[in-house]
Simulated scan of single mutants.
Amino acid sequence: MNKIELDKQTRDNSREIADANPARLGTRLKLARQTRGLTLKALSEAANCSESLLSKIENGKASPSLPMLHRLVQVLETNIGWMFEESDGDEGIVFRAGTRPLIALDPLRRGEGISLERIIPYSQGHLLQCNIHHIEKDGASAGPIQHAGEEVGYVLAGEIELIVGERQFQLSAGDSFVFNSDLPHHYRNTGTERASIFWVNTPPTF
């Protein structure tokens, strides 16, 4: 099998694993809401989102944007990592190529064109969150967002514009960055090809 075929198989396998994520997210969200004793209406009002959309998310029929997820977990006093956590037992140490899930937080918003390849599982047992952000041509992150923690990134491929607070940075393969997560931040692909960023943040948020 050549590299192109292997890359395609890896992406296909990752997408198959990701298919169950909306249902998993919906189940976790509903559990967190019920644990807090909140109705759909109460949570939607507190998180400034549509009650009907929230119902669809809980039933696995829709996926929220990243800013919406941040609002929901703030109200529910949990974290986004827990929403996607897959490991409830002993943690693994090695995660092989071709087995890492590829997550699209909002697959209904095709214009965003972003997927997250998990380097390590979402788990409360980890102090770090680590993903590879894949941004398709003309893709951009939802936001800006801000939260507690610190962000570190390394551009693996492509060209991106990183916006942190009031500052804008043009980055290409080999460039790296670090900033406090409480600064509003987002990014977009400014090149002609898919861009990829190796991204680490602490504490885990998404």
Results as ranks from 00 to 15, higher is better:
140 A>Q: 13
1 M>D: 04
158 G>Y: 09
103 I>V: 08
101 P>W: 01
92 G>T: 03
100 R>A: 00
126 H>Y: 15
137 K>T: 15
115 S>H: 03
189 N>C: 11
112 E>T: 13
181 S>L: 04
187 Y>L: 05
53 L>A: 07
205 T>I: 13
80 I>C: 11
149 G>Q: 02
187 Y>M: 08
164 V>K: 00
126 H>G: 14
177 F>I: 00
162 L>E: 04
134 H>K: 07
191 G>V: 10
48 N>Y: 10
194 R>M: 15
64 P>E: 05
14 S>G: 15
74 Q>K: 15
117 E>V: 08
83 M>W: 05
205 T>P: 03
140 A>D: 07
4 I>S: 12
94 V>K: 00
186 H>Y: 13
90 D>G: 03
25 L>K: 05
169 F>M: 04
91 E>T: 07
138 D>S: 10
20 A>H: 11
19 D>E: 14
20 A>R: 12
206 F>V: 06
74 Q>T: 15
139 G>H: 03
91 E>Q: 07
42 A>G: 01
123 S>D: 02
49 C>P: 00
142 A>Y: 04
202 T>H: 01
206 F>D: 01
200 V>M: 14
45 E>Q: 02
122 Y>I: 01
1 M>K: 06
12 D>R: 13
84 F>G: 01
133 H>I: 15
39 T>I: 10
48 N>G: 11
157 A>D: 12
26 G>W: 03
113 G>M: 02
141 S>A: 08
139 G>P: 03
183 L>A: 13
138 D>H: 09
163 I>Y: 01
206 F>Q: 00
